[in-house]
Amino acid sequence: MQKQSNLANKTALHQRNKHRQGYDFLALCETLPDFTPYVKPNQYNNLSIDFADPMAVKLLNKALLLHYYQLSNWDIPSEYLCPPIPGRADYIHYLADLLAYDNNDKIPVGKQIRVLDIGVGANVIYPIIGRAEYNWSFVGSDINPISIKAAKLIIQSNPLLNGFIDCRLQRDTSAIFRQIIKPKEFFMLTMCNPPFHDSAQAALASNQTKLKKLGKLQYSKSNPALNFGGQQTELWCKGGESALITNMIKESTQYKQQCLWFTSLVSKKESLKVLNKQLITVKPAEVKIIPMAQGQKSSRFIAWSFFHQDKRREIIKNHQGNSEGIKQTSVS
């Protein structure tokens, strides 16, 4: 292996994102030797992997989680979603900034900062990063029992995660918060990365476009699985992301006193018009749209709260206890 890694600066990522300098493949191979056979020089003579190869992508994720996020073990069932970690980390860091917005530019840290991850998946990526970076605790919900089982196995096999992440099966596929948020529970944040495709055909077409850009269209012809994997419920839902988030907004009114900020990623900019109309009907105290970017891709998440800022500040202060906040460099 050549002594060269891909360390191109990804300045679009959040300033606290550990992956702003790209992937240090040499260090990752040292952390996870099983990853080494998949790392080779690309056409620019930089070390890289075949991003159309599901096993290469899976081992990249495992190496990143072991190297940067203090895990000792991580695995997911075949053909389940294996998401790009830098973008997932960005969502967590921007959520931390959102809490800092109500806390004198200090990020609240510690187990008492509880987050609800809607659609936690088999990979448990968001709770892993949130626990490693800010010591937050999580409840992760999912409608897929196999995902919940796989997530629990990851938690059980990592001392870092034990006692910090609770996985709950959502048995009502029409519900989001109902049957997940228990009476008297309080969350600082809810988060969600909803499926943005509205059909299986749209998901497959998107995958073929990705593989064509990678010069690997033959993968989609011989194997319909996405290069990052994914079950049906992870990739598409009826009505796409705008329908799911609209339902989330409606249901959030039933739990307005049990969550400081409700949030969701919004992949398609055109979805915002529909969501803003729905938010007007539920009359939150504040709405924020936070822009994000990974490489050439722009994204965002929407956040709404039924508490005014003075009350939010009071709630965060009461939940911090004796934990020290991390002074952040800027507030988004």
Score class of each variant (00 low, 15 high):
residue 123 N to F: 02
residue 325 G to D: 08
residue 237 C to Y: 07
residue 263 T to S: 08
residue 319 H to D: 04
residue 114 R to Y: 01
residue 168 R to S: 06
residue 88 R to W: 14
residue 270 E to F: 05
residue 309 Q to I: 05
residue 327 K to E: 10
residue 250 K to Q: 08
residue 156 Q to C: 01
residue 186 F to K: 01
residue 303 A to Y: 01
residue 246 T to S: 09
residue 76 I to V: 15
residue 131 R to L: 05
residue 162 N to L: 15
residue 64 L to N: 01
residue 256 K to F: 09
residue 16 R to H: 03
residue 95 L to P: 15
residue 119 G to V: 07
residue 282 V to A: 08
residue 229 G to V: 00
residue 167 C to V: 14
residue 291 P to F: 11
residue 276 N to I: 14
residue 292 M to I: 15
residue 12 A to R: 14
residue 76 I to E: 03
residue 298 S to P: 04
residue 149 K to P: 02
residue 155 I to V: 15
residue 64 L to M: 13
residue 285 A to H: 13
residue 119 G to F: 11
residue 261 W to N: 08
residue 239 G to K: 02
residue 171 R to M: 11
residue 238 K to D: 08
residue 207 N to E: 15
residue 10 K to H: 15
residue 206 S to P: 04
residue 141 S to P: 11
residue 131 R to H: 08
residue 8 A to Q: 13
residue 91 Y to N: 03
residue 179 Q to G: 14
residue 278 Q to H: 09
residue 128 I to P: 10
residue 158 N to R: 01
residue 87 G to A: 14
residue 260 L to E: 10
residue 134 Y to P: 00
residue 106 K to T: 13
residue 195 P to T: 02
residue 326 I to G: 03
residue 216 K to M: 06
residue 270 E to L: 05
residue 144 N to A: 07
residue 313 R to K: 12
residue 232 Q to S: 11
residue 203 A to W: 08
residue 196 F to N: 05
residue 135 N to W: 06
residue 176 I to F: 14
residue 88 R to F: 13
residue 129 I to V: 10
residue 69 Y to A: 00
residue 5 S to Q: 10
residue 78 S to F: 13
residue 231 Q to Y: 00
residue 171 R to L: 09
residue 215 G to N: 04
residue 262 F to Y: 10
residue 20 R to N: 06
